[in-house]
Amino acid sequence: MDIQKKQLLEFYQQMVTIRIFESRVCELFAAGQIPGFVHSSLGQEAIAAGVMACVEKDDKVGLHHRSHGEMIAKGADMNKMMAELFGKATGTCKGKGGSMHIADMDLGILGANGILGAGYAIATGAAFACQYNETKDIALCLFGDGQSNRGPFHESLNVAALWKLPIVFICENNGFGLSNPVKEHLATDCVSDRAAAYGIPGVTVDGNDVLAVYETTLEAVDRARKGNGPSLLEFTTWRWHGHFEGDPAVYKDAQEQEEWLKKDPIPRFAKQLLEQKNATQAELDEMQAKGEALVDAAVKFAEESPWPDVSELFTDVYDRQM
C-alpha cells in the first residue's frame, strides 16, 4: 500500500502524543492529582493511531476502560480529557465521569466504559442506526482479550453478522484479562478464531506495527462501509503497565515484559520513517515537542479549571429535570 508521507507523519504524531499523555497521566495519578481508577494504554499506541486513521469524524466508536489513546486519535480535545481526569467542571463530562466514562458524542465517541464488554452492544446499536438512517457512517467497537469472553461479545457479533451491520470489531489483545494471561482465559489461540462462529472474516495482526494495523483496519472499514457486514480484527500487543495504575503486575513474567518493551511500536516506526527517508530526526523531534506542548497545555488547563458546583450532583440525571 502506498501511504502518503503526511499520513505517515500523522501516525507518528498521534503515537507520541498518546505516549506523552499517558505517561503524564500515570505521573499525575501517582502524585495524587487524579482520583479514581486509571488504566494506562502505554505500549498500545500503534493500535489507536492506526485504527482511528481509517475513520471519519462522523463514524462512531464504542470504547473500553483503557481508551485514552483511541480518543486522542479520534480527535478528542485533550484539555477537556485531562480536566475530566482531574474531575473538573471543564472536563468532557463536567467531572461526572472520570477516566472510565470519557465521551464525546460530537466526535462519535460513545464513551469509554467501566463495564468490560459493555461496548459491544452499544457499538452494534450505533452501527444499526447508521444502517437504518442510510448514512455512510460506520461504527468501531474496541475491546480487550479478556472482554472477548463476555456474553455480550457473542450476542453482538451474532446480530451484527446477521444484519450485516457496518461495524468493525477490534480486539486489542494485550496479553492479559486483568491478571489472567490469555492462555488461561481463552480456549483458543486467537480471539479472531471466533469469527467462524458468526460467519464473518477474522484476522490476527501485529498490533505494534502501525502500518499493519492501518491497512488491516482500512480493509475492514471499507467492507463495512460498502454494506458487506462486520469483521473481527485482533491486534496483538502488550500492556506495559498493570491493569490499573497501582497494580504492580507481579503476575507478569519479567523476561516476557522485557522482550515486549523492546518491541515498542514508537521507536520501531521512527526507524522505519528514517530509513525510508519519510522523516528526518529533526521532524521527529519536532513532533515530540509538539506532543509535549499539547499535554503541558492540557495539564495546565485542568489544573486551572474550577471544580464543579455541588449543585451539579443533581443535574443530568434525566433528560428533563423532574
Partner: peptide
C-alpha cells in the same frame, strides 16, 4: 444467525 451449522461455533 449468520451460520448454517451451530457446530461451527465449537471452533471459537
Amino acid at each position: 444467525q449468520n451460520i448454517t451449522d451451530v457446530s461451527d461455533r465449537a471452533t471459537a
